[in-house]
Amino acid sequence: LRQRHVACLARSERGLGFSIAGGKGSTPYRAGDAGIFVSRIAEGGAAHRAGTLQVGDRVLSINGVDVTEARHDHAVSLLTAASPTIALLLEREAGGP
């Protein structure tokens, strides 16, 4: 079961505080899956403080732009754009009992 949710992050002077992996033109985060995933969350960064991202979340869109088939460098450029806030649509595998 997959759950979707939106995370809104305000960029700090240190950026957004998370890294992505995967996407076309880069090493897959999961074998056989060209999706883009949250690969790291920086301690004390914007994403960590927001508490809405988890490592392993699939990134579906960035500020309304679909990145499900995107190249890695395109997703990075969307994240590093000048916008002071970033809205992410994420998909998470629902774990637990």
Score class of each variant (00 low, 15 high):
residue 55 V to Y: 00
residue 8 C to R: 14
residue 46 A to P: 14
residue 54 Q to P: 01
residue 38 V to R: 01
residue 10 A to H: 13
residue 60 L to K: 03
residue 69 E to G: 09
residue 33 D to S: 11
residue 45 G to N: 08
residue 28 P to E: 13
residue 81 A to D: 14
residue 47 A to N: 06
residue 70 A to H: 05
residue 21 A to Y: 06
residue 33 D to N: 10
residue 66 D to Q: 05
residue 9 L to H: 02
residue 45 G to Q: 08
residue 80 T to S: 15
residue 55 V to L: 07
residue 40 R to P: 01
residue 25 G to D: 13
residue 46 A to D: 14
residue 94 A to M: 13
residue 86 I to L: 11
residue 50 A to M: 08
residue 49 R to C: 13
residue 13 E to H: 12
residue 15 G to I: 03
residue 85 T to D: 10
residue 40 R to F: 15
residue 37 F to K: 04
residue 44 G to P: 06
residue 35 G to D: 01
residue 53 L to S: 00
residue 76 V to D: 07
residue 61 S to Y: 08
residue 79 L to T: 02
residue 41 I to K: 04
residue 12 S to M: 11
residue 37 F to A: 02
residue 49 R to I: 13
residue 76 V to A: 10
residue 78 L to D: 00
residue 25 G to M: 05
residue 77 S to P: 02
residue 47 A to D: 06
residue 65 V to K: 11
residue 38 V to E: 00
residue 70 A to F: 07
residue 7 A to L: 09
residue 13 E to W: 05
residue 8 C to Y: 15
residue 31 A to S: 15
residue 22 G to H: 01
residue 6 V to D: 05
residue 23 G to V: 00
residue 13 E to I: 06
residue 70 A to C: 12
residue 78 L to S: 01
residue 5 H to Q: 11
residue 95 G to I: 11
residue 72 H to E: 04
residue 88 L to M: 10
residue 95 G to L: 11
residue 31 A to R: 12
residue 56 G to Y: 02
residue 73 D to W: 05
residue 77 S to W: 09
residue 72 H to A: 09
residue 66 D to E: 04
residue 4 R to C: 06
residue 44 G to C: 09
residue 89 L to M: 10
residue 52 T to P: 04
residue 31 A to P: 15
residue 52 T to K: 11
residue 71 R to G: 11
residue 26 S to K: 07
residue 85 T to Y: 10
residue 39 S to H: 06
residue 74 H to W: 11
residue 10 A to N: 13
residue 53 L to F: 09
residue 94 A to E: 15
residue 73 D to L: 05
residue 82 A to W: 08
residue 96 G to D: 13
residue 18 F to P: 02
residue 90 L to T: 05
residue 13 E to P: 12
residue 90 L to C: 10
residue 83 S to M: 08
residue 85 T to L: 07
residue 7 A to W: 04
residue 26 S to V: 14
residue 93 E to A: 09
residue 22 G to Y: 02
residue 43 E to R: 10
residue 14 R to Q: 11
residue 45 G to E: 12
residue 51 G to A: 06
residue 38 V to A: 01
residue 80 T to H: 15
residue 93 E to H: 10
residue 67 V to C: 08
residue 2 R to H: 06
residue 30 R to A: 11
residue 74 H to N: 08
residue 88 L to Y: 00
